[in-house]
C-alpha cells in the first residue's frame, strides 16, 4: 500500500506532507502531555516494532504476499497518537534509510497508514467493545478495527492515486503521474484489501492481542 515516489504530483504530495506535518506537531504536543518522560522509550520501541511487524510476510493468492501494519494493535496497546508517531517513524526509516516507500510521498503514506488507518481502526474497536470487555468481545472488536483500519488506508490511497488523472494532464491530454483514473484505482486496491489483506491484518491483530490478553492483560488499556 506504500505509494512510491513518482506516482503523486507536487500539489498532492506537498499538501499531504503539510497535513501530516501538522498532525505530527499535534501528536508530539499531546504525547508530551499524556506520556511521562519515562514512557518515551516505549514509543521508540513501538516504532522499531512496527518496522519489524511489516517484515512478517503472509502469502496470498497469485504468488504475491502481504504484510500486516500492526496499526490497530499498536493503537490498542500504546494509544492512537502514539501509534501514529510510531508508525510514522517506521515508515520514515524505511523510506530514508532503506529506500522502501517514497520520500516525496512519505507524508501521504504516513497520513493513510499511520494516521487514518490507526485512528479509524481504533475508533471502531472502541465503538464495538464499548459496554463490555469480555475477552471474546475485545478480540472481535480488534479484528473489526484492524479490518476497517487497513481498508480506510487503502481507500485513501486509491483516491489519492486516482485523482492524479484529473489534477495533472499534459498539453496532449496524457496523465503526468499515476495514469489510472478513480474507476480503476478504487476497485483495484479495494478488491485485494476487502477480500485478502483486510483479513490478514485482522488475523494478525486478533492473534497478537489474544496472546497479550493471556500473558499481560493489563497492557490492553484505553488511552485517548
Amino acid at each position: 500500500m506504500h505509494i512510491p515516489d513518482g506516482y503523486l504530483g507536487p500539489a498532492t504530495y506537498g499538501g499531504l506532507w503539510a497535513a501530516t506535518a501538522g498532525l505530527w506537531v499535534v501528536a508530539s504536543k499531546r504525547l508530551k502531555k499524556t506520556f511521562k518522560a519515562a514512557e518515551v522509550p516505549l514509543l521508540a520501541l513501538g516504532a522499531a516494532l512496527s518496522f519489524v511487524i511489516m517484515m512478517f510476510n503472509v502469502p496470498v493468492v497469485g504468488g504475491t504476499s502481504g504484510h500486516a501494519t500492526g496499526a490497530v494493535l499498536l493503537a490498542i496497546v500504546l494509544g492512537p497518537w502514539a501509534a501514529f508517531i510510531s508508525l510514522s517513524i517506521a515508515l520514515a526509516v524505511q523510506a530514508l534509510v532503506f529506500g522502501d516507500g517514497g520520500i516525496t510521498t512519505l507524508g501521504a503514506n504516513c497520513f493513510n497508514m499511520a494516521f487514518a488507518g490507526a485512528f479509524a481502526g481504533y475508533m471502531l474497536y472502541r465503538l464495538v467493545s464499548a459496554g463490555g470487555a469480555s475477552r471474546k468481545r475485545l478480540l472481535f472488536s480488534a479484528g473489526c478495527g484492524a479490518y476497517f483500519g487497513i481498508n480506510v488506508s487503502a481507500l485513501l490511497t486509491a483516491v489519492e492515486l486516482g485523482v492524479q488523472t484529473i489534477m495533472y494532464k499534459g498539453a496532449d491530454g496524457r496523465p503526468l503521474y499515476n495514469p489510472f483514473p478513480l474507476k480503476v484505482t478504487i476497485p483495484a486496491l479495494m478488491a485485494g484489501h476487502l477480500t485478502v489483506f483486510g483479513f490478514v491484518e485482522a488475523a494478525f491483530t486478533v492473534l497478537s492481542l489474544a496472546y497479550i490478553l493471556k500473558a499481560h492483560p493489563e497492557l490492553v488499556r484505553t488511552r485517548t
Binding site: F56, G70, V206
Partner: peptide, 17 residues
C-alpha cells in the same frame, strides 16, 4: 506469526525500563 508479533511487542515492553 500472530504469536511472534505479540512476543516481539511484549519484548519491546519489557525492554522499556
Amino acid at each position: 506469526a500472530g504469536a511472534r508479533g505479540a512476543a516481539l511487542l511484549l519484548l519491546a515492553l519489557e525492554l522499556k525500563d
